[in-house]
Design a protein around this nucleic acid. Structure first.
Length: 378
RNA sequence: GGACGGGUGGGUGAGUGGCUAAAACCAGCAGACUGUAAAUCUGCCGCUCCUUGCGGGCUACGGAGGUUCGAAUCCUCCCCCGUCCA
């Protein structure tokens, strides 16, 4: 048994507590997955990630395909061995790059033609090719190639993208089934990605389409790309209300800490987001009191830890004044300490939420608590 | 003592008659960041007033005078710095 999801409990508010078993360990859900696009969660060592309790991280098909190349990673024993990460890895398909690198690509029904953002070389990525790459990488969870479009978008464009995503999912399903019959990729799970923009009917259709093909889990993509939070929630709910209860649901690319309870209440089990790592590098720290912009002059002589309520190794040892100094002096350690703290903040938040679900104490995650997290500089 | 070169806003440094409160970069101040082309990007950055407007006033390119409708830019003298010659 290589991959299995175990639903332990569903709280009255809809939040789910579960376990995801993979060849590289068990992931307690709801889970937050730090993003490690290029085979590294920027500014953190694998040791640090383990200490922080990350049970699964992301890698990116598009980026690893361009550099160092999936063939090289396969030769070196797969992504886990290459980066010396013993726990689980989920690889995103490159679908998000279809959206974020819009000027560098052209989409057809066949696939996506990309110009490398590194050197301009042209490549063609199809749903099949993207799975081949992910099989070479050896990730525990592979994502199908999808067409992620901006929101809001015209209904017709959204419908077209969702239809194409469905067609690509069908090809992906077929391709992996054939590979498995040849004995390849046996240990790897594959998730579909529901699209449909901000249109409820398209979302529902996309969810049904994907379910009809049968996947190991279902992701919701194309959200939190500029639309209102209420819309993100509404679209999420449209989809999760249809998805099979005994399979994991992954809301891609979210989110802000104060929004996480909202997503979990709609039955989400997995999330990933660059916010903790990117914001850390840019000097924005998440704390129990809200956001803290460490470069602000007010912290120049502040001897307090980043977050007085935090128990991470950075908060136990270093002052705001020191970390601010590191940022002002452009020292790499600033990014390292800040990232460590932010990732701890997210992972710890998830631990507490899991406990709350287990012990039926959902009220801890009240709107008052959420607005405190959303607060500005503390 | 002489010959050159030079003194510009917190710093470096463009600008050689009007489009200049003065490029650019740095520093500083603040904001953004959601499946990572991000240790990135954006705004502000002389003082002041208000009806906050591609608004008004004041001050500003070493100092003091002058030429001109108009000067950081041209002229005179002075001060200071650098290099070289005595």
């Amino acid at each position: 048994m290589s991959f299995r999801f175990e639903l332990l409990k569903t709280a009255p508010n809809g939040a789910r507590r579960g376990r995801l078993h993979t060849p590289h360990g068990t992931i307690e859900t709801p889970a937050f997955m730090p993003v490690g696009t290029a085979g590294t969660v920027k500014a953190l060592t694998q040791e640090a990630l383990e200490e922080l309790g990350a049970e699964i991280i992301l890698g990116n098909t598009y980026h690893l395909f361009l550099r160092p190349g999936h063939d090289r990673i396969r030769e070196l024993g797969g992504l886990h061995k290459f980066m010396s990460w013993p726990r689980a890895i989920l690889t995103d398909s490159g679908g998000f790059q279809v959206y974020s690198l819009a000027e560098l690509r052209k989409i057809t029904d066949e696939g996506v033609r990309f110009r490398s953002h590194l050197d301009g070389t042209e490549y063609f990525l199809s749903p099949e090719k993207v799975l081949e790459i992910q099989m070479a990488l050896g990730s525990d969870i592979m994502m199908v190639l999808d067409e992620c479009i901006e929101a809001p978008a015209e209904y017709s464009a959204t419908e077209k993208a969702a239809a194409r995503t469905f067609d690509w999912a069908r090809r992906s399903r077929k391709h992996l089934d054939e590979a498995k019959m040849r004995g390849e990729g046996l240990a790897q799970a594959m998730f579909a990605i529901v699209q449909g923009g901000t249109y409820a009917d398209l979302r529902k259709q996309s969810a049904r389409d994907m379910m009809s093909l049968g996947f190991d889990g279902y992701a919701i993509g194309g959200l939190a790309v500029g639309e209102e939070h209420a819309v993100t929630c509404a679209m999420t709910e449209e989809v999760t209300s249809l998805l099979p209860a005994d399979q994991p649901r992954y809301l891609m690319g979210v989110g802000k800490p104060e929004h996480i309870p909202d997503y979990l209440a709609r039955g989400i089990d997995m999330m990933d987001c660059v916010l903790p790592t990117r914001n850390a590098r840019n000097g924005c720290l998440f704390t129990s009191q809200g956001r803290l912009v460490i470069r602000n002059a007010r912290y120049a002589s502040d001897q307090n830890p980043l977050d007085p309520e935090c128990s991470c190794s950075v908060c136990l040892r270093y002052s705001r004044a020191y970390i601010r100094h590191l940022f002002m002096a452009n020292e790499v350690l600033g990014a390292i300490l800040a990232t460590h703290h932010n990732v701890h903040f997210y992972l710890d938040l998830m631990r507490r939420i899991r406990q709350a679900i287990e012990f039926g104490d959902i009220r801890d995650f009240s709107s008052e608590w959420q607005s405190r997290l959303a607060a500005g500089p503390c």
